[in-house]
Simulated assay, not measured.
Amino acid sequence: MPDAPPRPEPFVPQTAPEVLDDLRARLRATRWPDTPEDAGWSLGTDLAYLRELVAYWADEFDWPAQEAALARFPRFRVELGGLGIHFVHVRAAAPAGPVLPLVLSHGWPDSFWRYSKVIPLLTDPGAHGADPADAFDVVVPDMPGYGYSDRPTGPPLDSIAVAGLWAELMDVLGHPRFGAAGGDMGSHVSRYLGLDHPDRVVAVHRTDAGVPVYTGDPADLTPEERAWIEGAGAWGATEGAYAAMHRTKPQTAAFGLTDSPAGLAAWIVEKLRAWSDCDGDVERRFTKDEILTNVTLYWLTGTIGSSMRMYRANAAIAPAQHAGRVEVPSGFSLFPGDVVRPPRAWLERTANVVRVTEPARGGHFAPFEEPELYAEELRTFFRPYRAAAPG
């Protein structure tokens, strides 16, 4: 008899009170480092701000309320490739035309949390002042080693392998054809969905093109491309220490970050501030509750180490695989606060580009920072491809 196909099961996590008691005790026992006077954020996470955030986390943050708010989304787990994968699956509300299934891939340091604001805008646009005909069936998985998905016990999975899992997931959900979108690590996954599964993917949307990998003759690049690659290298020299650690010795950092919630918050909030369109004030984009919901997901699932190990897996991807050109229709929304924003010449070198826009606001976490703008970017880009993939 053939094996039964994977069957998604409803999933609603509930955190035991004693787990939260342990978290609060650890927060209150934090051993703080010294810092030079007036260092602010120049050396990394600002001590004064983190003290404030940790005090709020210990005494005021209401995780059960945040957990209940996340439970408004239909959530499931299914076994794929020997791993339990957690995902959100929200069907289009009152569709007025062909419904496009859409898989959204998150990045680091986040999870399905990245899309929690934008999901209702995509599944029920008519309730938010947009055209009901632009509704999507939305699928948002947690990557292996992130959020409520299983942590691989063997070698970490790279973006190519995750793209294969997402293609299988969409098949399990009854979506033979679908759109793919993402940013950060999710941009890589969406790219490989287009590269390796062009018969399944109708179009790919990304908010970035990743850090450039180019092994050809620099003379073949445009001046804009060469300047961008040089700029990306300069960014890596000043801002990329985290990525070097993730690629080379992630386990060393994982000990401290898994044991200390204050350390975990410091590791994550510095990136939320540096990569968002916040002009140096992280709470212009994320409230304390929003920051701590993201950080608490990492704490409760113990996934900071496993999430970092994916960088090591991606670093081993062969240059020839980086060089592949995505031939399915591709679109890019380059938000002004994002990092290492690519020139159009590079995008066209690497993908069949049909649309590039530069929204007025937003950064690396655009779906969370500017959900209305991001939703409109997706509605507009995918509109011509709806008929190719009825839900």
Rank of each mutant, 00 (worst) to 15 (best):
V12G: 07
L20N: 10
A29E: 11
T30I: 07
P36F: 03
G44A: 08
A48K: 10
Y49R: 06
L50T: 12
V54K: 01
A55D: 13
Y56W: 14
W57K: 12
R77F: 01
H89E: 09
R91Y: 07
A96W: 04
V103W: 01
W108T: 04
K117Q: 13
P125F: 06
H128Y: 09
A130H: 13
D142E: 10
G145M: 06
D150L: 05
P152M: 04
V162C: 13
G164A: 13
D171P: 01
D171W: 00
H175D: 03
G179R: 01
A180P: 01
G183S: 07
S187N: 06
V189Q: 09
V201N: 00
H205Y: 11
R206G: 12
D208L: 13
D208I: 01
V211F: 11
D220T: 15
I229K: 06
G233W: 12
Y242M: 10
Y242G: 14
W267A: 05
L272D: 00
R273H: 08
D277K: 07
G280H: 14
D281G: 01
V282I: 14
K288F: 11
I291F: 02
T296A: 14
L297F: 00
W299D: 06
L300M: 09
T301S: 10
S306T: 15
S307Y: 03
Y311Q: 00
N314Y: 09
V326W: 03
P329V: 06
G331V: 13
P342G: 07
R344C: 11
R344E: 15
E348D: 10
H364F: 04
P371V: 06
E372A: 15
E376N: 15
T380Y: 00
F381Y: 02
A388N: 04
G391H: 02
